[in-house]
Amino acid sequence: MDVKDIIKPENKVYSKTSVLTDNVMHYCPGCSHGTVHKLIAEVIDEMGIQDKTIGISPVGCSVFAYNYLDIDWQQAAHGRAPALATATARLFPDKYVFTYQGDGDLASIGTAEIMHACNRGENIVVIFINNAIYGMTGGQMAPTTLMGMKTATSPYGRCEELHGKPLKITELISQLEGTCYVTRQSVQSAAAARKTKRAIRKAFENCSQKKGTSFVEVVSACNSGWKLSPVKANEWMVENMFPNYPLGDLKDR
């Protein structure tokens, strides 16, 4: 059978969802952001909630998330996305409101906002991209940077004396009464990406059932920040990040 006989509309099994725009993403080659964007877009498409979804984008590489997902967006100040989401979800209780935040945004400058939004059980979805580094500002140490990991602001490796140990924010979040679903996933493989998509779908479904805050961490690679090739970065992530940030559900009720 010739390839041109296979490539026909009736044989199409996977194509870009229309919730993703045609814009070329500004992310580095192999960046996990693009994959997670796609998974969120696919969930929105499959649930038919494009007209009811409001995204809150952070400060960081994903500040431009609004260029890629064709929904209404609010772009927040650094760390404050959960505060925007709180008001939006309370004023529009029938909408699907989600924040999309990196580790610097969520686990450093925005700890107060994320803790209290989760503790109040705001009816929102939080997508947390943890790549253990500040990507956009040029690879500085993040609260989730691993011990010994070299970054622009920990050039000799993260050490406990100077920087303290990595902040396991998701474990903290899972302790809060307001959260209904707290999970940690990844997107380096097709199987992992499919699991993450199911987690995101569940989080959005929790939203429609008004169950409280759903928190989906995606352990991600920042190959530019880590100074590795995209494929090597994913391997490094599996080897080094997963032991510190083990995948799986921390809470599901």
């Binding site: 927040a76 505060a83 925007l84 709180t86 008001a87 939006t88 004023l91 107060a112 906002e113």
Partner: peptide, 19 residues
């Protein structure tokens, strides 16, 4: 809503005003 800080309350306004 009683927010956790003034920083949060003003950002809640940003969210609400956006709506």
């Amino acid at each position: 809503l009683q927010a956790e800080s003034e920083t949060s309350s003003i950002n809640m306004l940003y969210g609400g005003a956006s709506c």
